[in-house]
């Protein structure tokens, strides 16, 4: 039997074509960055279009590898990012469950106070934050790099909304079986919240990985730099008038973990961006 191809409606075809065009437009700069990273910097100064022709080289990546602290910066970034992500998710889940399920005095007021944190930008609190960690003599430590990022009102808001959306009946059945509050949370509610946790983890990981300002002023010793601060310091020329290939190799290197993260958690990233996690 001959297979029949069902024609897509015109509107859908236009939509697909538009998405393809947008995807290409989005991809071109990324491909360009990767291409430039494999070119000799001096060749690019004379002719930026040299990216389209041979020879290509690995010298920019080799140069990056001999930057002595690169491994240390990568390790620092991973420690900070992973710790921050795990702790933010944990704290947000506990706080979110509390706000969603436990009726304690002043709950609404505290929740409003937490939400107000969403309106305060990082820059507004950077001076008192710096002073506070200075008083505690904690600059140039992992604690200083990690702790400020744990105050995440977005995570609390997200998890509260998600837990509220889970029907109470599911927990009530467990209550009848004399399950403790924590057991209900741990064994019943939390597994249902995995999509929201994944969303929160991805956002936190991205934010933490790309954070620049706080590590810049708190981690002032090169051995405590994170990748963003360390790679920026390796810029070899104030005007960035040359060294384009090296700069692009840095960009690729710094972005690579993000790409890997996306490949493994693509489903959750798409959901997160679409806001599906709180539905």
């Amino acid at each position: 039997m001959a297979s029949k191809t069902i024609a897509r409606p015109m509107s859908e075809q236009i939509l697909v074509a538009s998405v393809v065009i947008l995807a290409i437009a989005w991809m071109v700069p990324l491909v360009w960055i990767v291409g430039l990273s494999f070119k000799n910097s001096l060749e690019l100064v004379v002719d930026p279009n040299a990216v389209f022709r041979f020879p290509y080289t690995l010298e920019n990546y080799a140069d990056l590898m001999v930057t002595s602290n690169l491994g240390v910066w990568l390790r620092n970034t991973l420690i900070v990012t992973v710790t921050q992500t795990v702790l933010v998710v944990a704290i947000s889940c506990l706080a979110g469950y509390g706000f969603a399920r436990i009726d304690f005095p002043g709950r609404n007021l505290v929740f409003i106070l937490v939400l107000m944190g969403l309106a305060i930008p990082q820059h507004a609190v950077i001076v008192p934050l710096h002073k506070m960690f200075n008083d505690w003599q904690m600059h140039n430590t992992f604690q200083a790099l990690i702790l400020p990022g744990l105050a995440g009102p977005f995570g609390v808001f997200l998890m509260t909304a998600y837990f509220r959306a889970i029907p109470l009946e599911i927990e009530e059945a467990a209550k009848l079986d004399n399950a403790s509050r924590f057991r209900i949370f741990w064994e019943i509610t939390l597994p249902l919240a995995v999509p929201a946790m994944a969303t929160l983890a991805i956002f936190t990981f991205l934010h933490s990985w790309n954070d620049y300002l706080w590590p810049l002023i708190s981690a002032t010793r090169p051995e405590m730099y994170t990748l963003t601060v360390g790679l920026a310091a390796t810029q070899t020329n104030i005007d960035q008038s040359e060294g384009l290939g090296y700069l692009m190799a840095q960009a690729v290197f710094a972005g690579l973990p993000m790409l890997i993260l996306y490949i493994f958690f693509q489903k959750y990233v798409v959901r997160a961006v679409a806001g599906a996690a709180i539905r």
Binding site: H130, K131, N134, Q137, H139, L216, I217, T220, A232, A233
Partner: peptide
């Protein structure tokens, strides 16, 4: 050498002085 990029060099230096580093 403790190398910082040009742009935020002085901001970081001020931060270092403030923190005693």
């Amino acid at each position: 050498p403790e190398i910082v990029e040009w742009g935020p060099y002085y901001e970081q230096l001020a931060g270092r002085i403030a923190s005693g580093d």
